[in-house]
Write a protein that binds this DNA or RNA. Sequence first.
DNA 1: TTGTGTTTTATTGCCTCC
DNA 2: GGAGGCAATAAAACACAA
Length: 235
Amino acid sequence: MEETSKRRPFFSTQEDLYDEEYFDEQLPEKKRRLTPEQVHLLEKSFEAENKLEPERKTQLAKNLGLQPRQVAVWFQNRRARWKTKQLERDYDELKASFDSLRSNYDSILKENDKLKAELISLTEKFEPKEPIGESGKKPDPIPADAPPCLDLTVKVEDRLSTGSDGSAVVDDDGRQLLDSGDSYFPNNDYPDCMAAVDGGINSEEDDGSDDGRGYFSDVFGAAEQQEPMGWCIWS
DNA sequence: TTGTGTTTTATTGCCTCC
DNA sequence: GGAGGCAATAAAACACAA
């Protein structure tokens, strides 16, 4: 333990820390951890404002007995840590929104199945015994002038059954882009979810240099890999 | 005591803004 | 072009299980 005696104890006092002899002669080039007092003050300053103007940097450095460069570096690293935590929080929030949407989607799908079965059963019940019309063809259970939601119901199922994943799906008259890949929350049908997304991106308190690349697409990309959902709009 | 994983401090290189 | 920010990374300091 000869070595230990030369090393600065982790929680040394500020007086010890700035002892000239210790700094200049014992460990001139080693990294030194900041004292809890220094960290506390830096944390408080960071809470107040996470960016450091030159004046504040100089003042803090003076108060803490550090080099301005050390204060700048500490803020830099602290912002990085904060950003990592924020990303984790955003991820959790988005995942919760995603799970909720997915569960909602599943229940709507079930409801669709139920209604479709009901429609078929009713159609069969009221179907005439003899074929109607000159062609003698059996009428389509779903009339041509059926409301779009019914038409769309079939398309959603088709999309799921064919296992198509990720390709853009547009309904016949092109009025809705079902999955363009640009956004998982088209229109404003899911305001809660959009709020979560907006909050996540904006709350980053970044200067914009991050340009938002890839993070959220990773989240949903991973989710879609588990099971393609076939996003759609019920009008 | 030692090996290993995590955290913290510091450096480097690139980018943006003025 | 210099200042300052960021991401990526190195390396020291620390924590902890075996």
